[in-house]
Design a protein around this nucleic acid. Structure first.
Length: 601
RNA sequence: GCACCCGUAGCUCAGUUGGAUAGAGUACCAGAUUCCGAAUCUGGGGGUCACAGGUUCAAAUCCUGUCGGGUGCGCCA
């Protein structure tokens, strides 16, 4: 199905073409001045300018032509040449009916679906996730849901950090903790015990200790580096230990992700591409893409105008537009995340064959991905325009600086989840649920409210900006929050239950009241919102839509009686049908955002 | 120093190819419930869109510069 704006744009474009002008001037959007019209077309000004015409005269010619469109009630020319379009009530009613019957609730579909890999999450093995991981998880998961909803073939990959120095630190720390384990016997080829020697609690105690110690204990850091090198070289005990670390960590990660309803198709990590690294290095060396520099193997990715040598004010030489090289192998002979990320691209091309890869990773990694993408492009794996780094801003405290706990440490995602749950439970208690809801259901509702609060709070911000984390505001039932959306959905569900009890069946939708018109216009904006969200990779467009729809419903609900005494049967049937359409789209939109509404709350 | 992100109401944030009177939420003020869930709705005040130039019929939006904040900048990931 097609939204009204697009249908009207078709009529406008045809009108422009009949005047010998370009079709693109026929773009139509919902009106900025709802008191004047439902839709507007601004093309007359631009087209008239280009053709040397008077914009108002042009508008006067275009208006009657589009006025013939069956959905259009009236077309006015206003101001310097705006076309203000009012659509008929019957067109709105028909549109609402179509949305109700549409699998995608009017959300449209992509013209050319793509095969896409979304790389998000990116948790490190052994390191508990912190607030910073919230954004990648929630934004990435939402993009997966969005693209999939619109018809793309999507694979989400968590891309664990399980191959770098942190594993070496952990190996050393466990060795110091339990030196007699078989994993530390260099000659031991296995097999090794199936039971992990450590728990997540151990890991989250050992890692911070080891990390801190390595910063001012050089010998300790060297041991960790050596352990990494040995692990990467394939030492069986270390590899077995690595697998335990991964298994133990993944189990814990799934708990935190589960709370947020974030899921992955693949739980691959850096270590999975290990077998590909050596042949890839050989390939790149032999093809002449990599060359030696200061003992390291690098790929030069600088472009014209970059790394230009100049002299600074202090007389020291400087690089203008610096672009560090792609580090394939470092001077110690080890590989870092340049190599694993490049190998991962190669692996995905060979095993999945996507048209495109999206990386939902902190904005601070922008340079890194620029380097990796240039390298991938240069060596012919995948062209740069098919590799997108979708950076996002930091989660800040009220002081505008990255969020910290009261003690000044980073806040764990698990604790964040718990805080949200506590806050949501508290709010539910304040609001007072109806008496017959048991403790189990109450607990479930609390989780759904907390999840809605967290996800919506994060997603409603434009992806690239930082945002201020304020749990109290996010969990509030008032205002632009996740819980508000749940309330709107739950209220419709309650209404539909009551309608069923009273034997009110949905009937033909009729659109008459101003609030009904606005509600249907809100419904009609779904396709555009999803389209923009996909095109820009920005989930907040979906949030804006879903919130606007909820508001339009609330206004409708308050102005238009539905099941009250004295309402005519036909009106009841129409309004119940309309409510059903709203719920259909609201749940589709919330589903994309990863938010689930309970039956009652 | 160089590069990227950002600067919009007291606060938190929207604002698709440049369009009419720059919008939400919150806070504040005033209303609405004998009736569908008031966790709601209606209305009000509140703005030099950081600043200065430029492009044009039209700029929060595009260009240049300045100021202010954040982030990154060869072998940690």
């Amino acid at each position: 199905m097609t939204d009204l704006a697009t249908q009207l744009a078709g009529a406008c474009s045809a009108a422009f073409e009949s005047e010998g002008l370009e079709a693109r001037w026929g773009a139509v959007k919902q009106s900025d001045r709802p008191e004047l019209a439902d839709f507007q077309c601004n093309g007359c000004m631009g087209a008239a300018k280009q053709a040397g015409m008077n914009p108002r005269e042009l508008a006067a010619k275009i208006a009657p032509k589009i006025g013939e469109h069956p959905s259009i009630e009236r077309v006015d020319v206003a101001g310097p040449g705006f076309l203000n379009i009012v659509v008929s009530n019957s067109a709105l009613a028909e549109q609402a009916t179509l949305i109700g019957a549409d699998d995608r609730a009017g959300g449209g579909a992509v013209d050319a679906p793509e095969k896409v890999v979304v790389d998000f999450g990116g948790p490190n093995v052994a390191k508990p996730m912190h607030v910073g991981h919230l954004r990648s998880a929630v934004i990435g998961d939402t993009l997966v849901r969005l693209l999939r909803f619109l018809g793309d073939d999507v694979t989400g990959d968590v891309h664990l950090g399980d191959w770098g120095l942190q594993m070496g630190l952990l190996i050393v720390a466990v060795k110091d903790d339990q030196p007699d384990l078989p994993y530390f016997d260099a000659g031991n080829q296995g097999p090794f015990p199936a039971e992990p020697p450590v728990t997540m609690v151990d890991l989250s105690r050992l890692y911070p200790m080891a990390s801190a110690r390595s910063k001012d204990d050089e010998a300790y850091a060297k041991r960790a580096q050596d352990a990494v090198a040995e692990m990467q070289a394939g030492r069986p005990g270390y590899r077995a230990l690595l697998q335990h670390f991964i298994d133990v960590s993944v189990a814990a990660l799934k708990v935190d992700y589960g709370f947020l309803d974030v899921s992955f198709d693949l739980w691959k990590g850096e270590s999975d591409v290990d077998p590909l690294i050596a042949p890839m290095i050989e390939e790149l060396k032999s093809k002449g893409f990599a060359h030696e520099d200061d003992g390291a193997w690098i790929i030069d990715i600088a472009r014209e105008g970059e790394n230009v040598e100049t002299v600074g004010k202090d007389g020291q030489p400087r690089l203008k537009n610096p672009m560090p090289p792609f580090m394939l192998v470092n001077s110690r002979g080890a590989t870092g995340y340049h190599a694993t990320d490049l190998a991962t691209i190669k692996d995905r091309i060979e095993t999945i064959g996507p048209d495109r890869m999206l990386y939902v990773v902190d904005q601070r990694q922008a340079l890194h991905f620029e380097q990796v993408y240039r390298a991938a492009d240069k060596v012919g794996y995948l062209s740069m325009d098919r590799l997108e780094h979708l950076g996002f801003g930091t989660v800040n405290g009220k002081d505008g600086k990255p969020f910290k706990t009261r003690e000044g440490g980073t806040l764990r995602l698990a604790d964040l989840n718990q805080m949200a749950l506590d806050e949501a439970t508290l709010r539910i208690g304040e609001a007072g649920l109806s008496g017959d809801i048991g403790e189990d259901e109450k607990g479930e509702i609390g989780k759904l409210v907390a999840r809605a609060a967290l996800r919506f709070a994060d997603l409603q911000n434009q992806r690239t900006t930082n945002y201020v984390f304020d749990l109290e505001r996010f969990t509030s039932f008032e205002g632009k929050t996740g819980p508000y959306l749940l309330y709107a959905a739950v209220r419709i569900k309650a209404l539909l239950r009551r309608a069923a009890d009273e034997g009110v069946v949905r009937g033909e939708i009729k659109v008459e009241a101003a609030e009904e018109r606005k509600l249907v216009l809100a419904l009609d904006g779904f396709a555009l919102a999803l389209h923009l969200a996909r095109e820009k990779r920005m989930p907040h467009f979906v949030c804006e839509h879903v919130y606007g729809l909820s508001q339009a419903f609330s206004a409708f609900y308050s102005a238009c009686p539905i099941l009250k005494d004295g309402v005519e049967a036909e009106t009841k049937a129409s309004r119940i049908a309309l409510c059903k359409v709203v719920l259909h789209q609201l749940e589709a939109g919330l589903g994309i955002l990863g938010i689930t509404a309970p039956e009652r709350m």
